[in-house]
Amino acid sequence: MPINQTDGTDQLLSASPTFVARTGSFFHRYANPGRFLKLGARLQPWLTWPAIAFTLVGLGWGLFYSPADWQQGDSVRIMYVHVPAAMLASGGYAGLALCGLLSLVWRHPLADLAAVEIGPVGACITALCLATGSIWGKPMWGTWWVWDARLTSVLVLFFLYLGHIALIRAFDDPQRGYRAAAILALAGAVDLPIIKFSVQWWNTLHQPDSITITGAPTMSASMLWPLALSTIGFSLGFAAIVVARTRAAVMESRIRALLSSPRRGGGAA
């Protein structure tokens, strides 16, 4: 099947079984873009609707039924937006780094498409984290912004996202953009432990984490529940949006492949 390839992914989009069989790789077999379209379409409602349900219940609970904090009063309700956004900002970047690894080592075409789509969504959620943090900081700390280790390292993460978005689109040959962006994603992952441990390694204005893997949460259970629900909701929502965008990206590659296919009457030369 002759196809004028515009980028490397289009080659795979013909979903030729011989190619899949030839590589025989686990990743290629289970996540090739053609299969992803089918899997993604089936997965989508299971992400989208629970995301909406969890987020609405979590945020509604946090906004109207959870108690006010003893010193922060009602401002503590900003937490139910800020904390999930902060977790996803780091989580999204970890996903980006994973895509980078899959792309560099296994030359996985789907990882490249996913990386293109995760970038803007991650940047948005990081911006939300920074904005809600700032809005929370003004009435509580008495300042919109300080250059402490936690705030600065999250700002660095935001710029890493922006750099990734720009880099992956910067080359005429998409493959070169994918490689460069994958390297940036992996290098930038160094920032993730810095963000996580910044509040322990250095003194900061930002308070240490209330929820840790090792210790019991230093938070009332009546606040922990809505926070957990909205975190699940935000995470599912992030996944739903990324899956939807990646499906669209696969379709767009397929459209490009069809348009450049000589079989199309009066199509490409």
Binding site: L59, G73, D74, S75, I78, V81, I135, P139
Partner: peptide, 14 residues
């Protein structure tokens, strides 16, 4: 609510 505008702004942005 003492800091209502801040809370509304956060949830609105989200």
């Amino acid at each position: 609510m003492t800091h209502l505008p801040y809370i509304v702004a956060s949830y609105g942005l989200a």
